[in-house]
Amino acid sequence: MKIDLSGKSALVTGSTGGIGFAIARGLQEAGAAVVINGRTPAAVDEALARLGGAARGRALDLASPEGARDLVALEPAFDIVVNNLGIFQPQDFFDTDDAIWERHWQVNVMVGVRLARAYLPPMAARGWGRMIFLGSESAFNIPVEMIHYGVSKTADVSLARGLAKRMAGTGVTVNSILPGPTLSEGVAEMLRPGMAGGKSLEEAGAEFVRAHRPTSLIQRLATVDEVASMAVYLASPLASATTGAALRVDGGVVDFIN
């Protein structure tokens, strides 16, 4: 199986690090012309230097209508859009105020809504396109330590399914990916307090999985490249019959068959 995205243009939001960067790298290696996105020029420039090749970057905060509008004005069309931008913040429900809920809703959900409104119609007009949402196993396995995050990811999965139905018959597919606990920079930072006594990051991650995601079948954190591989496949012509799906890269955390 060879994935060839030559001649395709791709946007990956929130892609200066973590899963987003790994997806951007995977798409570029498959031949796509990639645009990465981050909030600051410094972060974007550093990521472009690591990525190499002909990738371009857009330093814009997409968590506002203005940021999304500016991006679309600069980049009016893509063949592939990966809505990866997202935040998480462990916080007990009773200590989670409206501002935290609103921030998660704007970043994790509304960015994808705005980009879908802008980029799906041109894809349909060309008769081909791929839109991918990064959901989470937390969409189904709502984490008690951050209910607000789980709710936002459930919304992402629903949004992807609804948009897939809306784009039926156009040649455009819309899917969501459900990563499980993954060793991104953000997760690494969260795990550092548990690395006392000479534990490696991988060991701390495995302990976290056993304690907080005991249904995991791989009993470890996934790598960002493992998640990126699913995104690259979904972005390709090989996935032309896959749409409206929520595809799990969760290590078996969600305890049901689908």
Rank of each mutant, 00 (worst) to 15 (best):
E189Y: 08
F93M: 14
A241N: 06
A160G: 12
K2M: 11
G169D: 05
G20N: 03
H212V: 12
K2E: 12
R58F: 11
M190C: 00
G127S: 03
S6T: 15
G129L: 07
A206E: 14
D92V: 11
D98I: 14
I87M: 14
M195D: 04
I132G: 04
V253A: 12
K199N: 07
T173M: 08
A211G: 13
L120K: 02
A125R: 14
A24G: 13
A32H: 09
R50K: 15
G251A: 07
P76T: 11
K165D: 10
L163D: 04
V12K: 01
F133C: 06
I36R: 01
L201Y: 02
V34K: 06
G135L: 02
D250Q: 03
A63M: 08
A22L: 09
Q89D: 12
T182E: 01
P193K: 04
A30I: 12
R58G: 00
I142G: 03
G7C: 01
A124Y: 05
I100D: 05
P193L: 06
D225F: 05
P193Y: 02
K153V: 06
V34N: 09
A118I: 07
D97C: 05
G7Q: 01
G197C: 08
I87D: 11
I147R: 02
G31S: 03
E29P: 00
S138Y: 10
V157A: 15
A160K: 05
V151N: 01
R69S: 14
H148I: 04
P143F: 05
T173K: 10
L62D: 08
L134I: 15
P65A: 15
A77W: 12
L120C: 04
M123I: 02
F94Q: 12
R213C: 13
I132N: 02
G169R: 05
Q28I: 08
K2D: 11
L183N: 11
V109W: 00
P143E: 06
A32N: 10
I142C: 11
G127P: 03
G129N: 04
G52R: 03
G252A: 07
L134H: 06
D92C: 00
G251N: 05
A124D: 00
Y119I: 08
L178P: 02
D79Q: 08
L115P: 02
F208W: 15
E185W: 00
E137N: 11
W105V: 13
R103A: 15
P41N: 07
A245D: 07
D92L: 13
P193D: 02
